[in-house]
């Protein structure tokens, strides 16, 4: 199976000493991988390195045709369009409705209005929120807001979806709902790398689990 993400001996350290040491990791096309570890283990930093919000201080990262060593600054936006990112705090724009929040990710690519409309309605259907497209984020439950964030991450048809504690702010029922959607997306072909501190939740799915602690991969 083709690898779409590879980390080679990646190290990164913040000024306070926290960070990651010699991380090696491979995610294959269409795979679902859990990144499990306690708070402060380095999960978020690892995801940040993958979408190049931070750069490895040692080692390098391969993402499809992009290489962290050679990528030019002006190409980073184009890489990000191919990586979907979902956060614990959803990061939705409070001043626009569900439809516009999702459409936003396509507008930045310069897509035509008709295509934006068609594609946004498609992904909203996928996450089961077509009927709430005109609601404002504050009118939705936490689980629904996270589904909007997932729809936004998917609208550009990414090759991988990075999810940073997507269920961290949700009750159990909503968390399972979000996990179901991520699993469904994965079965449609998109690779998913999900960071969570909830080992049980990861174990239930039967997917590959990578455990991280204190900046290193432990298993």
């Amino acid at each position: 199976m083709k690898a779409i993400l590879k980390l080679f001996n990646v190290s990164f350290q913040y000024p306070n000493g926290d960070g990651l040491r010699r991380i090696n990791l491979t995610v294959n096309n269409g795979e679902f991988v859990f990144l499990v570890g306690p708070s402060g283990a380095g999960k978020t930093t690892l995801l940040k390195l993958i979408y190049l919000a931070e750069f490895p201080q040692e080692g390098h990262i391969l993402l499809n045709e992009f290489n962290s060593l050679w990528i030019r600054k002006k190409d980073i936006p184009f890489l990000r369009r191919k990586i979907g990112v979902v956060f614990q705090d959803f990061k939705l724009l409070r001043d626009r409705n569900v439809f516009d929040n999702v459409a936003f990710a396509l507008e930045v690519t310069g897509a035509r209005r008709r295509r934006i409309k068609r594609r946004v309605l498609e992904v909203l259907k996928d996450v089961g929120l077509s009927h709430k497209r005109l609601k404002m984020p504050d009118e939705l439950s936490g689980g629904e807001q996270q589904r909007v964030a997932i729809a936004r991450a998917l609208v550009n048809e990414p090759f991988i979806l990075l999810a940073d504690e997507p269920t961290g702010n949700l009750d159990r029922e909503s968390a399972i709902g979000v996990l179901d959607i991520l699993t469904r997306i994965n079965t449609m072909g998109t690779a998913v790398l999900m960071a969570t501190h909830n080992y049980e939740l990861a174990q239930q799915t039967g997917q590959r689990i990578i455990r991280i602690d204190n900046g290193t991969i432990v298993s």
Partner: peptide, 8 residues
Amino acid sequence: IMKLVGAT
């Protein structure tokens, strides 16, 4: 968010 979704 714009930066995250790939806006130049």
